[in-house]
Structure formats: C-alpha cells, structure tokens
Nucleic acid binder design. Structure first.
Lengths: 313, 313
DNA sequence: CGGTCGATTGAGGTAACTCAAGTGCGGTGG
DNA sequence: CCACCGCACTTGAGTTACCTCAATCGACCG
C-alpha cells in the first residue's frame, strides 16, 4: 500500500469544471488538500507527519440542492466539509424527513455508512459546497501507518457521537424555547469559529428544517423567534438573525408568559433593578424546574435568587 | 508492543473476589475472553486470527447500582457488556438526568470518552453485570496489526451512531404511544437476540428511567402501558411485560381515542371482519399523518385502506 | 406580473404535562 | 409475625405548551 495519492472519482458526482479559483479557502484554487490541512479543518491536534505533503485528498463541489449521498446507497466515502452548508436527513416510511444535522466547515459526513456498508442517512447541500473526499478503506489503511490519522478518525467519530448525545438530551428534556435558543447559540459559536460574525448571520435553512431538527413545527419555530425578537434577545428579519444577548440565550429555560411581557409587572413583586427588556428576558433563566426528568439522587438545589426572577413556575 | 495479554486493573473498580463460577456464560468461570469471543459478543463477522487465543481481555463485575464511570472522569477504557443491564445518563446543570441508552449484552460503552479523553456520560448497573475491559490505547494499537479488530472498532462506533440517529428521529417525530411501542419492540428483539423470550420479559428499569429515555414523564409511560394492556397489545404486571401483538406495536402511530376503545363503534363504520381487541388495535397504525415534518418532494401517498381503519385523524 | 415558496400570525384543539391521591410490594424493626 | 415505612406504580383531574388549520404577506423568479 504505497499509493500516496487518493483519486477514485465518485460515480454520480456532480459535473463541475475542474477549473481553478474555487470558493472556500483552497490556496491557489487547488482541488486537493494534504493531511495537515484536513486535520486543521477538523480541529484535530496538529499532525506532523514525515512526508504528509505527498498525501493528497481530492475535493468535489456540489451546488445548492444537490444530494451528496442517499439512504441505502453503497458506502465507500467519508466527506469533510471545506465550505458551504448542508443538511443530513432521515426519511421515514411515509416520506417525512427528519433533519439530523446541519454540517458545515470542519464537519465529517458519512460515518453512519461504515457499519452496514450503506449510508443510513441522506446529505443535501443547502448552499454551494466544497467537500473533501476520504475513501474510507484507503483512509483506514493509511491510519494503520500514520497513527495521527487513526486518532483523527476515532476522535471525529467520538465527537459526532457526543454531539448526538447532546441532541438526544435536548430533545428529551428542553422546552421549545430552550431548543431554539440553544440552536441559535450553537450556530453563533460555529460562525465565530469559522471567522464569521457571531452576532449577525444568515440562516441557511428554512423554518421547516429547523423545526424538523429541533422536533418542533415550523410555526413554533417562527413564533419563538418572534418572541425572542420581541423581548430583545435577538433581531429577526427573514433569515437574518442578530444575536443581542448570547448569555441569556445560552441559559434560557422558559420565557415569561406573553401577557407578562408587554407590560412589566408579571407575576409577583420581583425585579428591583435592571430595567431593559433584554435584561428582563435574560432573567427568565435558570429556574430549578425539575423538568420531566429529575435525578433521584442529587437533590435539586434552588437557583440563586438573582437569577430566578421569572423562575417560579 | 508485543504484549498479548491485557491486564491493567481499573482503579476504583469494585472489589469482587476473582473466584470461579461467574454469572454470564464464561466457560468454566473464566475471567478472561479472547478476541473471538469478543467479536461474537459484538455480532461482528467472525475473526479468524492467527494466534488470537493468546489475546485476552479481562472481565470485571459490577453489582446493581454501582457506577462504571462518571462524567468527567479520565477516559482510558471501553467496556463491552457480557451480561447484565445498565443505563447511561447525561446530567444537566440542575442535576436532572437524561437516560441515553440501556446497554445490555453485546453493547459497547465508553466510546464518548475518546474525543475529549474524558467520559461525557455516566454508566450505572441496573443489575449485577459482567463487563469486558478494553483498554482503548492498547486496543487501537492491536487494531493496527489485526485488521479485523480495527474493522470491529469502526463498525461498532458507526453502529452506535446510527442507533443514536434513530433515537433522534424517534424523539423528534413520534407520539408518546409510538415511542413506548417501539421501545417495547426493541427490547423484545434484544431479548430474542440474547436467547430469552421475546414474548415475556422483565423490565430492568423504572418508569421514570423509561420516561427519561423516551422524552416522556413517568405518568405518560405508565398510562401508555396501561392503554396498550387495555386494547390487548401487551400485558402488564409491574415490571413484567408480555408482548401480544408485536406487529401492531412495530407499526403503531397512534391509538384510537380512549372513548372509542371501550365500546367498539369509534369513528365511522369501519372494521368488517377481525373482531378481537388486539386486531382492532393493530389497525390503529400506519396513518399517512404527515407529522410535524413532511417531505417537500415525496408526496405522502395514502396508506392501504386495510391498514387505515383508525387512520383519519 | 402572476406564481410559487417561505415566513408570520391568529384561533382553536389536544397530547402530554403537572399535581395529587391512592395502591401494592418489599424490606426492616418491634 | 405483623406494623410500619419507603418506593415504584397507577390513576384521576385540571392545565398548558405545542400542534393544526388557515389566512395573509413578502421575496424571489421565470
């Protein structure tokens, strides 16, 4: 196994002229990346590999709406997102789709195909994309020689697993408002990580897709965004989102009832200082509401009073 | 790296006399397993390895209620369940726990620790357990030599990922009844796989834990089980569950409204033949209800009339 | 400039939650 | 042995968060 260059064109890959000047960050419009670049993309500890420069991975471009792989299709490739936005979905027996993730720069896709040798999900480009192809079998073989590569593989798969666990936790335990809030925060963080503004960005997905991802209807997503906008947590204009109070969003559990929002008084005589709408909303946070799930052992201790203004539910 | 025997006692492991005659199926009460046995346990294609007999993995026993690992604890081990039942949980900022899985024979645990080098979840024994220890670093090293082992690692991690994706789909899209039904079916299948009865078994977890796992309250779980019992899909006596109509459970979307259950008529003059309660319930199935999430492309086609008795919602 | 698609908003319904009894079982101590 | 207690479970009644259905509006596109 001394092939240092990974070619193997995917059948059914989109026809894109292999010209120069691609989107993304490829130096000089190259269509290949070496291992070091791949590792950087994945945020994996730097890999100083002897002759890693010779080891090249091919890029492929997809246009908005194109499918990268479909459910049941034979698996042979992993993909890393170099630029662009996608969604991965599950399709149930009635054709309804369930969004599983919104991969973007630095994410790996296709891992679900390893087990059965067939992809168990479908990936669709939400914008024009530049992906790096990783032929799995060859990659695994290389991993045996280059330990860092193997670490990368295990690390990325484990990371993905943890992400999904967090998702399950969210779907199982949080209110609609908390889900939307965390979704926005997560997006904001990702944009920051990619060097974009974390305060103002465009959603690449529809309300419907967000709802599917979060286990909500599109109406609920829309209403929740409007509510956040109303209390000054964010600004919303179609797909443009402005994050105004990241901390409040991060910890939000439940918004105060709508009737209490417009006119201040709300329930009880709380709230001495801090008068802005945003500050008011920001307080509607860490309530010790033992959700649907309560730990049998660890007793739920009360939240600090300063944080529990709207907390009594 | 020519160590063919994997020792390394876990600090904090439970004190269990390393005597013979253990629970589970270990021949002659051994406390070690070779690679072949591990692969069989994981349902991975048989591994015919040259001198795999020399490669031994240690077992450890845990008693009911003991913790295998906790959140934040430094990661170094993977675990395979040889016998017994466990739960893995996430714990949020208020001490509430979210059940992620109920590992049993053949399942791997601890994979979430690879990425950050710390376990991100907690594993607790719901019954006395016998686990096989797999020191991750050594295992990975061995995987480089024995390809089958490496395949096993990737395969198991991918399988786990697919399982979690299915979980997300379930939490995001299904009704309480459908979730409980699928949970029972999944358990039933696992028991069958392990050689136990798939028709009659004991739940090892509380209603609270089931609810947490399914994103429901314990009351909803209890009520749903009672409802299933009432229409003859299952029998319930505390933790003893009898599966009476597996197919109905598998496809169940929504039960007919309770008022329609006691006295037959329900909505409309459907249901010509097939008069048992179970058969009636079994029909309450594949309704083309476009759930919260509908595919934009694939039009939802009507379900076959024979299956859609209670379907009109 | 219509046509389509996505987003917003309202009104009403309901599935699932919350709170609250009440039951049964298993363990412990008198 | 039985009384007592704690815990898991069941069941009911009332509440509500989210869904469903529907109308409207704006943006984009051929």
């Amino acid at each position: 196994m001394q092939s240092t260059q990974i070619t193997e064109f995917r059948p059914g890959a989109p026809a894109v002229p292999p010209s120069g000047l691609e989107a993304g960050r490829q130096r000089q419009g190259r269509l290949w990346s070496n291992l070091k670049e791949v590792c950087e993309l994945l945020h994996i500890p730097p890999v100083n590999l002897a002759h890693s420069e010779e080891l090249l991975f091919q890029h492929v471009q997809f246009k908005t709406g194109q499918r990268i792989h479909t459910i049941g299709q034979p698996f042979d490739m992993l993909y890393i997102v170099n630029s662009g936005f996608l969604k991965t979905v599950l399709i149930d027996e009635f054709g309804n789709e369930q969004v599983l993730s919104f991969p973007m720069k630095g994410d790996m896709m296709g891992v679900d195909g390893i087990h059965t040798r067939h992809y168990s999900s479908e990936a669709v480009a939400l914008s024009d994309c530049d992906l790096i192809l990783l032929p799995f079998r060859k990659l695994a073989a290389l991993g045996r020689v280059h330990i860092e590569l193997e670490n990368m593989m295990y690390g990325v798969m484990s990371r993905e697993l943890v992400r999904e666990q967090a998702m399950i936790g969210m779907l199982g335990a949080l209110s609609a408002e908390a889900r939307v809030a965390r979704f926005l925060v997560a997006l904001s963080d990702r944009f920051a990580q990619m060097g974009y503004s974390s305060k103002l960005f465009n959603l690449r997905m529809t309300r419907h897709e967000i709802g599917s991802y979060l286990g909500l209807t599109l109406e609920t997503v829309s209403r929740t965004l409007s509510a956040f906008n109303e209390v000054g947590l964010i600004s919303v204009d179609q797909r443009t989102i402005g994050i105004k109070d990241p901390d409040a969003l991060k910890n939000l559990r439940r918004l105060p009832p709508s009737r209490a929002r417009g006119r201040q008084p709300g329930a009880g005589r709380a709230k001495p200082a801090a008068a802005t709408a945003a500050a008011g909303a920001a307080a509607a946070l860490v309530a010790p509401i033992a959700g649907p799930v309560t730990a049998p052992a660890a007793p739920v201790q009360a939240a600090p009073a300063s944080q529990a203004l709207y907390a009594a539910v």
